[in-house]
């Protein structure tokens, strides 16, 4: 219930409004770093300002490097954006459900990310690449607004150079100097190399984008119970007590954020739920 102080080890600016913090438990905090599963999130506390729910975007095999990618949009995230190396931040977590990496064993994986939605999916990529033999074809389809809004550009390039991972990146708009794809990320779905009858899809991005991605996947006659999405709602307590993150009968904080599409499909069509 109480945040554990963590020290900022490194800060990277990812895009004009998005940055990444690498944290480690503060000196004097004897406890070991918390391990986490891909898809889970922490509550990050900026001293005196407030808490924000931020997905964990680092390597699950290296929990001692706690990595969060944050978009500075509200009072708390803007305060977090002002943190520098050596500063302290409070952490509660990890909370929530995880991407179905067990269920995906032996099967193809199609990862579809939009905007900052790549952050909670990056641990999946790390895990899959470290355990590559356990999975079939793996495809990462990533969409962003413009080339300048792409997260983890260097890593994307490295991943694209691999023979065991298909990476496709699309932006909505680009200057003529951009040599990559312009268009919507869903255009990649019909031509990506995965077997729809066998694959597991993991999708995270703005709700509208996830809806289109699911439509694209279902056109390939993929089973909807093999599709997973990560949801976002207002969060205060992260443990199901405060009521804020309710989404129909579900609490995003403890039943989610990762849901099978099948379990939330009906709710996604109700406005203002």
């Amino acid at each position: 219930m109480v945040p554990r102080p963590h020290t900022v080890r490194r800060v990277w600016q990812e895009t004009h409004d998005t940055f990444t913090l690498e944290l480690a438990p503060a000196a004097g905090d004897g406890a070991a770093p918390s391990s986490f599963a891909p898809g889970q999130f922490n509550m990050l506390y900026a001293f005196g300002v407030g808490e924000a729910a931020i997905s964990i975007s680092g390597d699950p095999a290296r929990p001692e490097r706690l990595v969060h990618t944050i978009r500075a949009v509200g009072a708390t995230t803007k305060a977090l954006a002002r943190l520098r190396r050596g500063d302290t931040v409070g952490i509660r977590g990890p909370f929530g459900s995880q991407w179905p990496l067990g269920e995906a064993a032996g099967r193809d994986i199609v990862i579809i990310a939009g905007g900052i939605g790549l952050a909670p999916l990056r641990p999946v990529v790390y895990h899959v690449l470290q355990n590559r033999q356990n999975y079939g074809n793996v495809v990462l389809l990533y969409g962003a607004r413009s080339p300048g809004d792409l997260l983890y550009a260097k890593e994307l390039e490295q991943w694209r150079g691999r023979f065991d991972l298909e990476v496709q990146v699309a932006v909505d708009r680009a200057p003529a100097t951009w040599r990559g794809t312009v268009g919507v990320v869903t255009n990649f779905i019909p031509r990506a190399r995965f077997d729809p009858s066998e694959a597991v899809a993991m999708i995270c991005g703005p709700e509208i984008m996830m809806r289109f991605a699911v439509q694209g996947i279902e056109e390939l006659e993929m089973k909807s119970e093999s599709i997973y999405i990560s949801m976002e709602r207002n969060m205060k307590c992260a443990v199901g007590f405060c009521g804020h993150c309710q989404f129909g009968p579900a609490f995003i904080c403890k039943d989610g954020p990762v849901f099978s599409y099948e379990s939330v499909r009906a709710l996604l069509n109700i406005r203002g739920i």
Partner: peptide, 14 residues
Amino acid sequence: LQATRLQLLNVYEL
């Protein structure tokens, strides 16, 4: 047309 509409929605902007 559908793809253009999706682009038009500018979904990645807050």
